[in-house]
Amino acid sequence: MSDDTNKDQALSADDLASVLHGLASSPGRRITSINVSGRRVWIKRFDIEPLAFAKRLHWLVSPVLFPVFLRGSKPALGEAGVERECSKMAAFQAAGFQTPDVIYRSGATLILSDVSPVLTEQLAGASEQERRELLPVLFAALGRIHGAGLVHGRPHLRDISIREGKTFFFDFEEAPETTMPLADAQARDLWLVMLPVVAAEPDADQCRLFLRAWLDIAPVAAILALRRFLGFCRPVLGLARLVPVSLQGGDLRRFLGAARFLVAAISDMDSAIAANGHRAGSQQVKS
């Protein structure tokens, strides 16, 4: 998406003054929310936070990591970060999916429309019944995205909003599909969403319902990629039994919880592979 595509959305002099005031009032902040012409917008700066050492190290060793599922995409900073985000939003919108609107972009700064509340806030204030109604919508939307040949890259719950039955995706800052096969990148999307969901939902049967909402739609290749990754996880789960719970950090506990749940749900994946493969074959015959 080039700057030319946003010239018709150029800010008025008053709006631009509000943006400049917001930036001046929050130096060093990567993301700022302000009101412009009576509406809330988000200013994202891709030239603020230096890339953390751990992320730089991950990128440097990514080419040799196995399985490929664990590789990271090349960091996009400055104008490259704006370009990546805008390009991904344009691809999602072209395929009929919801994202924030690009209001303005200039250099390493991007201004987006507001689509809050984010899913983390929605779930925090939701009843058990509401939570169990929201999450299948999310997993089904993710399945449709993958079915359209797209990848989010880093679908944390804070990067998603569900409004009036529509799922909005944003913060497209990673592109794992550039460092691994598309199917693996899509399986990685599912894995990243599962990490917080399994940690927050104690009922495994409910988690299986969420997973099935994705399995019913997801491409067979993505499900197979997920199964391959779980094959890698099996010996890790065995070794984890040797680590006392008191020594397991939050990240490790979430990893183990999601891995154990997904390994236990492999039969669901096999059923979906058979059903989705049959459906795809039937559609090819009809066409």
Results as ranks from 00 to 15, higher is better:
A52T: 04
G153I: 15
L190V: 12
G165L: 05
V197Q: 08
I43Q: 06
G257I: 11
A213Y: 02
A94M: 09
P155E: 13
F210E: 08
G249Q: 03
L16I: 11
E121Q: 14
A204H: 04
H278I: 12
A199I: 11
F139L: 08
V198Y: 03
R45Q: 06
A204G: 04
A222V: 05
A222G: 07
R188A: 00
L65H: 12
Q122S: 02
F255P: 07
D270A: 01
K286S: 14
L237F: 02
L134Q: 10
L110F: 08
E174H: 15
P244T: 07
P67F: 00
L123T: 15
S12G: 05
F139P: 13
R227M: 07
P75L: 02
L23H: 09
H146V: 13
E177V: 08
L211Y: 01
E49C: 07
V19E: 07
V19N: 12
E133N: 12
P67W: 01
G249S: 02
G125N: 07
R253T: 01
G81V: 02
V245T: 14
T32D: 01
C207M: 01
L138G: 14
E177I: 09
I160Q: 09
D159V: 13
W42T: 02
D4A: 06
A94I: 00
Q206N: 04
V193F: 15
W191N: 08
R254G: 15
L110P: 09
I217K: 08
Q186Y: 02
L224R: 02
P235H: 07
F69N: 00
G257Q: 12
A91W: 11
D270N: 12
I31R: 08
S12Y: 06
M194K: 10
A140C: 14
F69E: 00
L57P: 13
L57W: 09
F69I: 03
A265W: 00
E49P: 05
A108M: 03
D47P: 10
G250S: 10
Q284W: 12
L262I: 01
Q206P: 06
L77W: 14
H278A: 14
A108R: 11
V236M: 04
K7C: 11
A148N: 04
S116I: 05
A221K: 00
Q93D: 03
G165A: 06
E164W: 06
V102D: 13
E85T: 10
G149Y: 12
S18P: 08
A185C: 03
L23W: 04
L65F: 04
E128P: 14
V220P: 13
A275V: 12
A183G: 01
E128K: 13
M180K: 09
A225F: 05
V41P: 10
G277M: 06
C207Q: 03
D184I: 01
L242Y: 10
A222Y: 03
P244C: 15
W191S: 02
A218W: 03
P27D: 00
I31E: 02
A17Y: 00
